[in-house]
Design a protein around this nucleic acid. Structure first.
Lengths: 225, 225
DNA sequence: CCTACCGATCGGTAGG
DNA sequence: CCTACCGATCGGTAGG
């Protein structure tokens, strides 16, 4: 018998442990990460890092298992397939990106500058999502989209739509006030593209800082600020 | 014996046929493409299409061989490895992109609007390179960079630098005239990113046309036009 | 989660 | 460019 079948709650179709069975196994390899029950989370983090560095196809499930001290077959106890693991990485990335975004735009004080400040916060939150420490999940999504099944892609599209939707009202206000002159829909696609492409060239150890990058975006895309 | 070793002239290290040996083989499969001697070109085009659609790792050399009516081992007569084939695809893409770009900016009439018009032409040429019929070579380069060896990457970087260098003087003029307010170097990275990212969402069969897209870029990035 | 394994695929090559 | 093939790797699974 493999992992028990259960109702699917996520497209990544992870098989979470059936019963805790705690304190019954053999001694842990290292004392760290004894907070068992988070082996799944460790797999996700290792997979995100390796997928980002090497790409999905160039990373074997054995690599990922080894990175968390497991043996070759064990990741399939937590995830039903390699693609399900990839999908879970992307879903986790989008969830945290959406949360970071929501946190960034809340409590922006009203006033004539509100939309500008919201725009600045959205841009900065996006850069944090792409370039923050350990934030490998969304970059993986950006260039490993093709490796999903179409069903997985559809599920992720909902999360992406929700993320992108937050930009629209801000861009509309800026458009109405003359700060943004391009059509809102195209502007959103182009701006998000400009930001996202930074995964290809941004190096936190040299060149501009994220603050400088954010300001460069503001003066590049908007008419007066 | 395999293909004869010879001095390497290109990073893709293609093994071109030693002697023509023409009119000695068996009858061609189809009457078309009898312009023999271009089997290498056919492999390049097929590889570009498949790499773009499915990705490098998800495309087998057998797929590529079959697409041009060859048998599984034959691509290795023309290219020493799968990666060399990928690199050749990218080099070909960059060569034609550079040629298209040079053609686009030549003969822009001098005058106060010259830089604006050059900018427009650069943008439009970039979109043509990404979205023109059969132009799969550069899109492959954009998201299959990681699959190259570091030596191949270095060789390609030269071509990319040459391509990007053409933007700098135009952006500098626009910056000096106040049309562009962001720092030139960051502006170039962000603008090229915005354009390049369109491979992820642009659909020639619906939505905006390339002309509309180009104009949207102009009003998004520049202050008055 | 480990052990032991299978079936399939794939890049690449020798020789003609 | 074809034929025939090899060695290696890989995703995944049965059973515990």
């Amino acid at each position: 018998m493999t992992a028990p079948k259960r109702s699917i709650t996520s497209t990544s179709e992870a098989a979470s442990p059936a019963l805790p069975k705690r304190a019954r196994g053999r001694p842990r390899k290292t004392a760290e990460e004894r907070d068992d029950g988070n082996r799944r989370g460790a797999l996700l983090a290792a997979a995100a890092r390796l997928f980002r560095r090497q790409g999905f196809d160039a990373t074997s499930t054995r690599d990922i298992a080894a990175a968390v001290g497991m043996h070759s077959g064990s990741p399939f106890y937590h995830f039903k397939s390699k693609k399900a693991l990839l999908c879970a990485v992307m879903e986790e990335g989008m969830r945290s990106a959406i949360a970071r975004q929501a946190h960034a735009v809340q409590d922006v004080p009203p006033g004539p500058q509100q939309a500008l400040q919201q725009m600045r916060r959205l841009i900065r939150a996006h850069f944090d999502t792409l370039h923050g420490r350990g934030n490998d999940f969304v970059p993986v999504m950006l260039y490993e989209h093709r490796s999903l099944t179409s069903a997985q892609r559809a599920s992720l599209t909902k999360l992406q739509d929700s993320y992108e939707a937050a930009w629209t009202p801000v861009l509309e206000v800026l458009h109405a006030s003359g700060q943004l002159r391009a059509p809102v829909k195209l502007a959103r696609l182009l701006i998000l593209g400009a930001l996202s492409w930074s995964v290809q060239w941004f190096d936190p150890k040299k060149g501009a800082s994220l603050d400088e990058l954010t300001e460069a975006c503001m003066v590049l895309f908007l008419k007066e600020c």
